[in-house]
């Protein structure tokens, strides 16, 4: 659309044996904006993120980050691009033989020249932000699923990334915690102005955070619209999705009222 698009997926297809999961995905992610990818389980949302990260190669099609094709770029170039990324994996992918503290400290240790004291302060700050004080010495196996998510978020945000990818950041969190996480996103984004790509099932709450909402269905991005346009879209697939995911709210409101 315009020149500000930071990430572009052009006709990306991905096939696993006989199953074609992505069937020509076109998606633009705009600088400084929050794009939320929604869609039913198993549609390939996590796969889209893995393609943008360069962890998977498309069967055909291109993924451009800052105008550079992530699959043909040199290793050094790829590393430079990834240096701006902050990633939360769907299953957190914490380093399971390191403590929570060390997990969050790792990017600081390996990528910056920060002193031990700076590291300790920064990590403590991130852990407080994610409401994890006192869990620093625990190992990933000793904390709950929702805590793992928050450790993953702390690790993703510790280096002040320019682009963040959050795969289901609030799945498995209680409502108060997930509201708190959304507030953290909002705060850090206004502070850092990062571009974010969020995969979420938390419709419609996630709409409050979104600048754009993209629906993945049947291997293609049906449309990428602002939340208001999304909810009033004429596209039958989007309308069905909106009704299915938000319908129950209207219904329960009606029953209560």
């Amino acid at each position: 659309m315009n020149a500000q698009s930071m990430i572009q997926m052009i006709d990306v297809r991905k096939r696993f044996g006989a199953q074609e999961v992505l069937k020509g995905v076109n998606l633009s992610i705009f600088e400084g904006k929050t794009t939320v990818i929604v869609g039913e389980s198993g549609q390939g949302k996590s796969l889209i993120i893995k393609h943008i990260l360069g962890l998977m190669k498309p069967t055909s099609g291109k993924v451009l980050v800052n105008g550079k094709d992530i699959n043909t770029i040199s290793r050094k170039g790829l590393k430079e691009i990834r240096a701006n990324f902050g990633v939360l994996f769907q299953h957190a992918a914490l380093f399971d033989s390191m403590t929570v503290f060390e997990n969050v400290a790792l990017p600081l240790r390996e990528r910056t020249k920060a002193s031990e004291e700076e590291i300790r302060n920064k990590v403590a700050e991130m852990l407080t932000l994610m409401d994890l004080e006192g869990s620093g010495e625990k190992y990933p196996a000793q904390i709950s699923g929702g805590m793992k998510k928050r450790v993953g978020l702390a690790r993703a945000l510790v280096l002040n990334p320019k682009i963040v990818f959050f795969d289901e950041p609030t799945t498995g969190l209680d409502i108060a915690k997930s509201n708190e996480i959304y507030r953290v996103f909002f705060r850090t984004q206004t502070k850092l102005g990062y571009t974010s790509v969020i995969v979420s099932h938390d419709v419609p709450k996630i709409f409050k955070l979104a600048d754009y909402v993209a629906l993945l269905y049947n291997g293609v991005i049906q449309d990428c619209l602002s939340p208001e346009d999304f909810q009033t879209s004429e596209n039958p697939v989007i309308r069905e999705f909106v009704e299915k995911t938000m319908g129950h709210i209207y219904e329960s409101e009606r029953m209560e009222g």
Partner: peptide, 21 residues
């Protein structure tokens, strides 16, 4: 075994995405 487990639990992917080789 250690490296294999890191691979299957996406820890190696996570390292790469942090731009740590």
């Amino acid at each position: 075994a250690e490296i294999g487990i890191m691979r299957i639990s996406e820890q190696i992917d996570a390292l790469e995405c942090m731009a740590i080789d």
